[in-house]
Simulated scan of single mutants.
Amino acid sequence: MNPPTALSSERAAEINEVIDRITRWARGREDIVGLLLVGSCARDAAWPDSDIDVVLLTAEESRHLLADACAVGLGLGGPIRTQSWGPITERRYATASGLEVELAIGSPTWAETDPVDAGTHRVVTDCARVLHDPAGILAGLLAAC
């Protein structure tokens, strides 16, 4: 079996730019109460076929689930999948270059710590990096995990 191909500097720059763009957008919105990067990008272990996985916690969950306006404005490309994972709904997009971006959209209850949901615990302990946490909700979750 051949080892995976290393991430090119161009793809790494694209990944970082998309993460920065999403983070700047979230910081400018009062309804976004948490933004958490998870998975291989959070571990700094992305491969060419890795996607960007971001948990977006919002006080206006339905607003972000009913429209792709934020994805269009962020340049995330076209929607390719919507899937419910319990308290989180995945909205997956593909950029023009083929980079996939998953926004896992949910309410702040996803980050509850008494007790921490088993699925949430699994996601967080796989590796998570806080991108935006104005009220400390995600810091509390990471500490509980």
Rank of each mutant, 00 (worst) to 15 (best):
S40K: 05
A104K: 00
A42W: 03
H121I: 03
R81M: 13
A42Y: 03
L76R: 08
W85A: 04
I80K: 08
P79V: 13
R81I: 06
R122Y: 08
A104V: 00
H64K: 01
D68I: 10
G98A: 05
S97K: 05
A71Y: 06
D51L: 04
E90F: 00
T58V: 09
A69S: 15
E102S: 12
R63L: 14
G75N: 08
S97V: 04
P48D: 02
A118D: 13
T89F: 01
R92Y: 01
L66R: 15
L76I: 11
E90T: 01
S40R: 06
L65Q: 05
G98D: 03
L103K: 02
V38S: 06
D126H: 13
E61P: 01
G98R: 03
V38Q: 07
T120H: 06
D117N: 14
G39E: 07
A46G: 06
R91A: 00
T113E: 07
E61F: 01
T120M: 07
L35H: 05
S84Q: 12
P108I: 11
S50M: 05
L36T: 08
C70F: 14
P108G: 12
R92W: 02
L99M: 08
L66S: 14
G34F: 02
V72P: 02
Y93W: 06
S107A: 15
D53L: 03
D49S: 14
T58C: 10
D53F: 03
T82E: 12
A42T: 05
T82V: 14
L99R: 04
A94M: 05
A42Q: 04
I80T: 12
P115A: 09
A96T: 09
H121M: 12
E112L: 11
L76T: 09
D68E: 15
G39V: 07
G86R: 13
L66Y: 10
P79K: 11
G86H: 10
H64S: 02
L99A: 06
L35Y: 04
L65H: 03
W85P: 00
W110S: 05
D117Q: 11
H64M: 03
S50C: 08
V54W: 02
C41N: 13
V72I: 15
R122Q: 10
L37M: 03
G34M: 02
G78S: 15
V55R: 00
G73R: 08
Q83M: 06
E61W: 02
P48C: 03
A94L: 05
R43Y: 07
L76A: 10
I80L: 09
G77D: 06
T113C: 13
A46H: 08
G119M: 09
G75T: 07
V123R: 01
G86V: 09
S107E: 14
D44V: 12
A59R: 15
A104T: 00
V123P: 00
D126Q: 13
G119L: 09
R92M: 04
R81H: 09
D117P: 05
E90W: 00
A59W: 12
V123F: 02
I88A: 00
G86D: 13
D126I: 04
L56V: 09
V38I: 15
V38L: 07
P115D: 08
P48V: 01
E61T: 14
A94W: 00
V33N: 01
D114Y: 14
R63W: 11
T95L: 15
L56D: 01
D117W: 08
R63Y: 13
A71K: 06
T95W: 07
L74M: 10
C70M: 14
R81S: 11
W47D: 14
L76S: 08
T125F: 07
